[in-house]
Computed example of a mutant assay.
Amino acid sequence: MRLAALLLCLALPVAAQSAAAPDDMARRAAAQLQQAAAGLERAGSARDRVAALTRTIRAYEAGLAAMREGLRRASARERTIRESFEVERLRLEQLIGALQSMHSSPEALLLLHPSGALGTARSGMVLSDVTPALHAEVEELRARLEELATLRALQDGAAQTLEEALRGVQEARTRLSQAISDRTELPRRVTEDPAQMRRLIESADTLEGFATSLASLPADPAAPDLPDFAAAKGDLELPVRGTVRRGFREPDAAGIRRPGLLVETAPGAVVTTPWPATIRYLGPLLDYGNVMILEPSGGYLLVFAGLDQVYGRAGDVLPAGSPIGLMPGADRAPAIPAAATEPGGQAPDETLYLELREGDAPVDPRQWFRLDED
Rank of each mutant, 00 (worst) to 15 (best):
T150E: 14
P276T: 04
L286G: 00
L207C: 01
A159Q: 05
D182S: 10
R28Y: 15
I256A: 10
R91K: 14
A347L: 07
G247I: 02
G124W: 03
P132I: 13
L371R: 06
M67E: 08
L261N: 01
L226G: 01
E83Q: 12
R332C: 12
E61S: 15
T272P: 01
P13C: 09
E202D: 11
R79L: 03
Y288C: 00
R2M: 07
Q100H: 09
E146K: 11
L99R: 09
L162C: 07
A38K: 11
E83H: 06
E139S: 13
S322H: 10
T243W: 08
I96R: 14
G247R: 03
A333S: 12
L301K: 04
R2V: 04
E140K: 14
S128G: 13
G70S: 05
L145T: 13
D252G: 05
A143M: 11
T54H: 07
A231W: 03
A46I: 04
D220N: 08
G344S: 14
A149S: 14
P132W: 12
E295Y: 02
E137W: 08
G157R: 04
T278V: 09
S297P: 02
D331P: 08
A230C: 07
L318S: 02
I180K: 04
W368C: 04
G124S: 01
R42D: 04
I256V: 03
L154W: 02
L64D: 00
E86M: 11
I256G: 03
A254L: 10
E355M: 14
A153Y: 03
L64V: 03
I293A: 01
A121H: 07
G242S: 07
A340W: 07
T56Q: 05
N290A: 01
L110M: 08
A253P: 08
S181I: 09
F304V: 08
P218D: 03
Y288N: 00
D23T: 15
A62M: 10
S216T: 13
A19E: 15
L301M: 07
A108K: 11
E163V: 05
A26R: 14
T80F: 04
G44K: 12
G283H: 01
A46S: 10
D24F: 13
A26P: 14
G157K: 05
R42I: 04
E164Y: 07
E88T: 11
R246F: 04
L302D: 01
T56K: 03
P274E: 02
D48S: 08
P296W: 01
A20R: 12
L261A: 03
R258E: 09
E171A: 07
S101P: 06
P365K: 00
A230E: 04
D205E: 10
P106M: 14
R199Q: 15
A335T: 05
R55W: 06
A165T: 06
A266T: 05
G299L: 03
V317G: 06
H103T: 11
P343D: 09
L151R: 02
A253T: 08
E350N: 09
I180R: 03
L352R: 08
S123N: 12
A19L: 15
A333Q: 05
L92A: 11
A195F: 12
G255Y: 05
R42P: 06
M25A: 15
G209A: 07
D364T: 10
